[in-house]
Write a protein that binds this DNA or RNA. Structure first.
Lengths: 255, 255
DNA sequence: CTTCGAGTTCAGTAATACTGGACCGCCGTG
DNA sequence: CACGGCGGTCCAGTATTACTGAACTCGAAG
């Protein structure tokens, strides 16, 4: 996926976070667990862990290390700027639980989408994307739901800035085609994504619009094409999403 | 404060987090802001920031960098293990707002205290402690409130493991003295801290006890000795804390 | 058009992160 | 009770890489 490595990247910082992410994924791990996962010596992993532990970024429990509470503070700070998170989090969680799929909350920043929250239902697909990840807006249902409710000039500016690279053969990569698609999304109030970003993955998204008629973000449900078919894909899930969005929109207004 | 540096510490990991903490503190900063704050060259800071930005751990907004949303995910994970956080957070925030002081939430882990949450009121003192920080239990009101409600054998074990080093001349450093002090705390239901950990800082704490009579943590209010005097110190704040603790305890039981 | 300030890029050098081996403590087994 | 194995921790040398400083770019202001 064209992951050009910045030659000046501080690799130690990257591995530091790789370790933390791995700890998160495994829900805690021992030194040797991590030596297997990373191509590093036992002692090196150990140095990382003790360093992080001394500063509270990881917690040691017997021989297993876990993500530390100090990250709560940094994360909470980032979150503090995003009021929508507080309002929509529980609803997105519930959406994931009820559908069993992967539910997402995306906001727009500087012309790109940022995942604010993500909840895994029982059958949810695993993806390699992460909270805080920035994605293009033109090639996802979430992004389209947002773009459809931005002024045309703004959308033009975003495309000028970021372009519209194709990631699969279903990606819309023509500007006019995108605009007519967005019009359709605006009319229907729902955006569909048929493997436009990822092969085998379909997605349904609806915008979150406040009472000033400006879009605050979008929520979606995504899952394997096999389970996203016919009425479920075209009617059931869109209806569900619209009702959840409605609840969130009410909470935005009255809090 | 006896900050022995581990000679094998991964310094790059430490500076990485120093930068993030600084970004948090300043609520965003530019490259040059940070060059002044740290003894590093502009290019080096820049390398850190771009590396972190590429991975979503910081966000760039024009020329200022901010703590990124990806940390939300890691922090949220750490928090997930601590149910008390969700339950008590809002109450502690309110406590800080109402008193204007610094309000804290501490839990016990492996014989040490860990700050789960901290809220600054308008007049709150600045301290150098952080969320996730581990502290001794014997020399703070918060710690004493917890210890007072643990079985004596457990307290003995904790002291055996961690000792009871003195940090100011008011620290209790005798075992018998501690136990008689804890008895008093248990009877009164409140722990006071008169500059036992930090010069000039007084603190009032009460335990959070669930319906199994086991202690889940403690909350406190702390501030300068000048403002913590007489009735306010001895009656007003203790009463306030007890009522807040009561609310939290009810929420623990009925959620 | 010029100047200034700030961010970014790059190649060389100094610092430091990684390795492998030794040590230690623990648990289960002979 | 001794032994063996496993995992975590410590340490010194080496190779990687993070840091520097100068040059470049860009935008805003004069």
């Amino acid at each position: 996926m064209a992951d050009q490595q910045n030659p000046n990247a501080v690799k130690t910082a990257q591995t530091t976070f790789s370790i933390l992410e791995e700890l998160k994924e495994r829900n805690g791990a021992t030194v040797t667990d991590l030596t297997d996962a990373f191509d590093l010596s036992k002692s090196s992993i150990h140095n990382y862990l003790t360093t992080l532990e001394d500063d509270g970024y990881v917690m040691k429990d017997g021989n297993t290390y876990e993500v530390g509470l100090r990250l709560l503070d940094l994360g909470g700070h980032a979150r503090h700027r995003e009021r929508l998170y507080d309002i929509a989090k529980d609803e997105v969680d519930e959406l994931a639980a009820e559908t069993g799929e992967l539910a997402n909350l995306l906001v727009e920043q500087h012309g790109k989408g940022v995942y604010l929250h993500r909840a895994h239902g029982d059958d949810a697909v695993k993806t390699d994307s992460y909270i805080g990840q920035r994605v293009y807006l033109h090639n996802t249902a979430l992004g389209n739901a947002i773009l459809a409710h931005l002024p045309r000039a703004r959308v033009e500016a975003i495309i000028d800035q970021h372009g519209m690279p194709a990631t699969t053969e279903n990606t819309i990569s023509d500007r006019d085609e995108l605009f007519s698609h967005l019009e359709q999304v605006r009319e229907e109030g729902v955006a569909f994504d048929d493997e436009a970003r990822l092969k085998g993955l379909r997605c349904v998204a609806v915008p979150i619009v406040n009472n000033n008629d400006t879009v605050e973000g979008a929520i979606s449900v995504s899952g394997p094409t096999s389970r996203f078919q016919n009425e479920r894909f075209r009617e059931e899930l869109p209806e569900k999403l619209k009702s959840v969005a409605n609840v969130i929109e009410l909470n935005i207004t009255y809090t």
